[in-house]
Design a protein around this nucleic acid. Structure first.
Length: 594
RNA sequence: GGGCUCUUAGCUCAGUGGAUAGAGCAACCGCCUUCUAAGCGGUCGGUCACUGGUUCGAGUCCAGUAGAGCCCGCCA
């Protein structure tokens, strides 16, 4: 087969093999086996080939035959010669498939002119909302916002690349009791901040917030005033709204500094956006017969949730003072996102501590029949960021770490490391180079360290580990990319112009291993867009870097004779482009030199 | 008391119901006259918390036990 055929069969290898197996199952065992899962996956060990089917063992009971006999019959009816070597039966009844070098060569050669590197855009794009980051107005962004921001951005990037229509929403905390207490406090001690722009910077605001919170916790009268202020806000008092607006504007500027640093694009649509819709949420829940008044508050009592005394737990929709809280806002947001934004997939990226809250809100929305069957709603939760002592990450003095400081330190450390290496190697680089490289390495390291862990577990934050040059880190991968660019500089190679005759030839094991991995990008992205676990993409890119480094170690490129030389140059270029694309989906930029 | 998440090598962590459970770090041993050694190869390292169950097959699914973290009525 040649490159043209490969282009006409654009489906992933796995899909092709699966459908061949499905056809064989029907051909051998009859129509009753239509739709039987062929149980195809990558092999558990490269010595078994590339893919394995476990179907014979699964079907043994149903067919009353030995697995190996079933495998034998299946193979007879199976024609995969287009892309595989003859399949082999092994062990208890596994069917092992090994891809033909010619097939790999043809597929990869086609990637040469494909910016998407073989990854097809989805046929049915879904309107998807990714709700992430969500800092609170009047507070500084801190470590707690790190994971939501990084993971949410990554998920959005991947879904966008797959062709989905993604709306990235920043559900900022710009409403609620905390706001009331801040305005109440400022009215007392710094009234000009409520009427004049830039009267305070965010640092002051944060200090005031802390004091306000203190007052709120110990002074019942202050509490009451704060609640009243919230009611004023919610009912649209002009003066309060103006003060509120000034505070928001101040915070917004500061958030943007962080988002620029992290290269994050997001649309702000805070809690306040849903303010005018809260009343109808209450009304509709009332109509649906879900609302119960208890101690003056309007609640929905939940199925499967209890308080300490074993009583059913309420979700409070409207407080006894008439104010609304976050559950109400989240319910309004669900409705708005489905009815007005026409979202088909709703994704919330917040910490695991909010799992109860979302489970409760989703339950109420379902019982109110606001979530149609064809719409999925997911809480993408993640664990705590912990210090190296295993406790919640804090500064030495016990304060919360500002996100800004955390990122600055990562960049500073990357810079110190780079400078010491330059000195050691007696290299001289411009200030511009050093600044840029440190910036990319530092920020990438923070992002990659976070994304490379399974998000559901807590994660231990360590500058030393994330900035390490060895292992599963951003610098290791950036270096693999830089190595390719080094080859092109050394050999004066223009990867865009390797000639129309250029073809990929896979002769060495290291070449074959690398080639097979390059072909798995699509499957990897499919998996990530389903389970929303970015660490799988990280794992893929890490393995790609390892396989490239092995190839680099064993196969000379520039010194090789033609046609191997051009073929290897193509493999280098494909690797670099795959790394660049993959890292970009993690929100990480590459460097040409480092 | 209830709920959620977790428990895998000395450390940090992967692991789609399938074959002999993997990686990185740390430790130790090798490899630069050859494209950046920020690399590559090798050695050492395991009662997958425990007990049952489902299954042809369980680290993976179910139940229970123990331990850790987080959450649990008017904050978000």
């Amino acid at each position: 087969m040649d490159a043209i055929d490969a282009l006409q069969v654009p489906k992933g290898v796995v899909e092709q093999l699966k459908s061949c197996l499905e056809q064989a199952l029907v051909a051998v065992f009859g129509e009753a086996f239509t739709g039987t899962d062929p149980m195809l996956g990558p092999t558990s060990n490269p010595k078994f080939g590339d893919y394995q089917s476990n179907a014979p063992m699964a079907l043994a009971k149903r067919l009353g035959k030995a697995p190996r006999a079933i495998a034998e019959e299946l193979i007879q009816q199976l024609d995969v010669s287009e892309f595989c070597l003859p399949p082999a039966i092994a062990g208890a009844g596994f069917i092992n498939f090994t891809l033909k070098p010619e097939y790999l060569e043809a597929r990869l050669s086609a990637f040469q002119v494909d910016d998407r590197l073989g990854v097809e855009a989805v046929k049915k794009p879904k309107r998807t909302i990714v709700d992430f980051s969500s800092p609170n107005i009047a507070k500084e962004m801190h470590v707690g916002h790190l994971r939501s921001t990084i993971i949410g951005d990554c998920i959005a990037r991947i879904l966008e690349f797959q062709g989905h229509d993604v709306l990235r929403l920043n559900h900022v905390g710009d409403w609620g009791t905390q706001f009331g207490m801040l305005i109440t406090y400022l009215r007392e001690v710094c009234p000009e901040a409520l009427t004049t722009a830039d009267a305070l910077d965010l640092g002051d605001l944060v200090a005031f917030y802390k004091k306000a919170k203190q007052r709120f916790d110990e002074d019942p009268q202050f509490q009451e005033q704060s609640r009243q202020e919230v009611v004023q806000l919610q009912s649209g008092s002009k003066e309060t709204l103006r003060a509120w607006n000034l505070l928001c504007e101040q915070s917004r500027k500061e958030f943007q500094v962080i988002y620029n640093l992290l290269d994050i694009c997001i649309t702000e649509r805070g809690e306040s956006f849903y303010n005018s819709l809260l009343g109808s949420v209450v009304e509709d829940l009332e109509k649906a017969g879900l609302l119960v008044e208890d101690h003056g508050a309007k609640c929905v009592f939940l199925d499967g949730f209890q308080n300490r005394e074993g009583q059913p737990l309420p979700l409070i929709i409207q407080k006894s003072d008439g104010g609304y809280n976050y559950a109400t806002t989240d319910l309004a947001a669900i409705r708005y996102r489905i009815r007005e934004d026409h979202a088909k997939r709703l994704i919330y990226v917040t910490d695991a501590g909010q799992a109860n809250h979302f489970a409760q809100v989703f339950q109420v929305a379902r019982r109110a029949e606001w979530i149609p069957e064809d719409i999925t709603i997911e809480h993408v939760q993640f664990g705590l960021v912990q210090g190296e002592d295993g406790k919640k990450l804090k500064t030495r003095s016990g304060d919360t770490i500002r996100l800004r400081d955390l990122l600055d330190e990562a960049v500073d450390r990357a810079r110190a490391d780079l400078e010491s290496r330059l000195k050691e190697e007696e290299r001289h680089e411009t200030e511009e180079f050093i600044t840029h490289a440190s910036q990319i390495v530092g920020i990438s390291a923070v992002k990659y360290a976070d994304l490379s862990q399974n998000r559901t577990s807590n994660y231990i934050f360590s500058y030393d580990k994330m900035l390490a040059l060895q292992g599963n880190t951003a610098p290791y991968m950036l270096y693999a990319y830089v190595r390719v660019q080094g080859i092109s500089r050394k050999g004066n190679i223009d990867f865009q112009n390797l000639g129309s005759e250029a073809t990929i030839l896979l002769r060495e094991d290291a070449e074959l291993t690398l080639a097979k991995h390059l072909l798995q990008l699509e499957d990897t992205l499919d998996a990530v867009s389903q389970d929303l676990l970015p660490n799988r993409l990280c794992q893929y890119l890490f393995e790609l870097s390892q396989k490239f480094n092995q190839f680099y170690d064993r196969c000379p490129v520039l010194q090789a004779e033609e046609p191997a030389r051009t073929s290897r140059l193509m493999l280098c270029d494909l690797t670099a482009r795959t790394l660049k694309l993959g890292l970009s989906l993690l929100g990480i930029q590459v460097l040409e030199r480092m």
